[in-house]
């Protein structure tokens, strides 16, 4: 909303106090700009030893040996990408289904109540999700893994000893953490689909599902994509829940049953006890990579959601 051309514009000769007030609020606003710049800047400065020692290959080197002081980020990047992809592959269908039900089938009141409940899920601290993960999901996965290995073991993704902790557990737990983001944004976008479009399709004899598939989904596509990227941004950076169930083993394996590691998890685990400067700088370098990835993912998310809301209004 812009100020309409009104008396605000004519407010006359600037009062000294007015000017001072504007500058004061601007200063507070610029604190935010300063923080964002400082964040990138301090991390770049405090990771310089790692970039100097290992260069860009730091990103795709798989060795992580604090004793020999050889550091490479690939096991963590790999773990972050795999666990997030796994989380999306569970949460996207589940979230879309829920959003379709809430937007298209459920009566408005039930829909509002249910989506409030699902949004509460997003408010639950992730350390509590991690606690649930350790004591419920890990035993459950440990129980299911021998069966998975027997039936799907011909695939490289389901081999290995049934530890319970590992990629699969982390991915599932992440799925529940990002589910609310997908559901609430997707539902809201679906509710903005114009009634006339639905009625036109129904009038042509489409079933309600065909309306969803042929009218609602295409209309909501960019908004849904935005929701998925927003959820991905959350999944990539989620720390506690992942740290508690992923197994914290820096190795690269195709198997989802094997323990792994993630960028956020290694920071949470090793930062406080990193002894040498190079060790600290290598960890900050991982933080910088994570920072870069999430900025890009979130920018895509905002662009998509913005595009969807501009069209809806």
């Amino acid at each position: 909303m812009r100020m309409s051309p009104s008396v605000l514009a004519l407010a006359g000769p600037r009062w000294g106090a007015d000017d001072a007030f504007r500058r004061m609020t601007l200063a507070f606003g610029l604190v935010i700009v300063g923080l964002a710049v400082a964040m990138g800047g301090t991390m770049a400065v405090n990771s310089r030893l790692a970039w100097r020692a290992f260069g860009l290959p730091f990103i795709w080197t798989s060795t992580w040996d604090p004793v020999a002081e050889v550091f490479g980020a690939w096991p963590f990047i790999w773990g972050t990408l795999v666990s997030s992809a796994l989380a999306l592959s569970v949460a996207v269908p589940l979230g879309l289904g829920t959003a379709v039900f809430l937007a298209e089938v459920a009566p408005r009141r039930l829909s509002d109540a249910a989506s409030f409940a699902i949004e509460l899920l997003a408010a639950i601290p992730t350390v509590i999700m991690g606690l649930m993960g350790i004591f419920i999901l890990v035993p459950l996965v440990r129980w299911a893994e021998p069966w998975l290995a027997r039936t799907l073991g011909f695939l490289p993704f389901f081999r290995g000893a049934p530890y319970g902790v590992g990629m699969l557990t982390a991915g599932l737990l992440l799925a529940f953490i990002i589910l609310p983001y997908i559901v609430s944004i997707t539902r809201e976008i679906m509710l903005t689909v114009p009634r006339s479009l639905r009625e036109a399709a129904l009038g042509l004899g489409a079933t309600k599902w065909e309306v969803v598939r042929l009218v609602v989904f295409p209309y909501a596509r960019s908004g849904v994509t935005g929701a998925v990227f927003l959820a991905l941004g959350r999944a990539l950076g989620e720390t506690m829940a992942v740290t508690m169930v992923i197994g914290n083993t820096p190795k690269v394996s195709l198997s989802l049953l094997e323990p792994g590691y993630s960028m956020a998890a290694v920071l949470a685990n090793e930062f406080a006890e990193a002894s040498s400067d190079l060790y600290v700088h290598s960890l900050v370098a991982i933080g910088l990579v994570l920072f870069g990835i999430t900025i890009v993912v979130n920018a895509i998310a905002r662009l998509m959601i913005h595009r969807a809301t501009v069209r809806a209004s």
Partner: peptide, 12 residues
Amino acid sequence: LNGIPSIVTGIF
């Protein structure tokens, strides 16, 4: 700032 992981804020 809103999108970056809280662990990165911790590093800052």
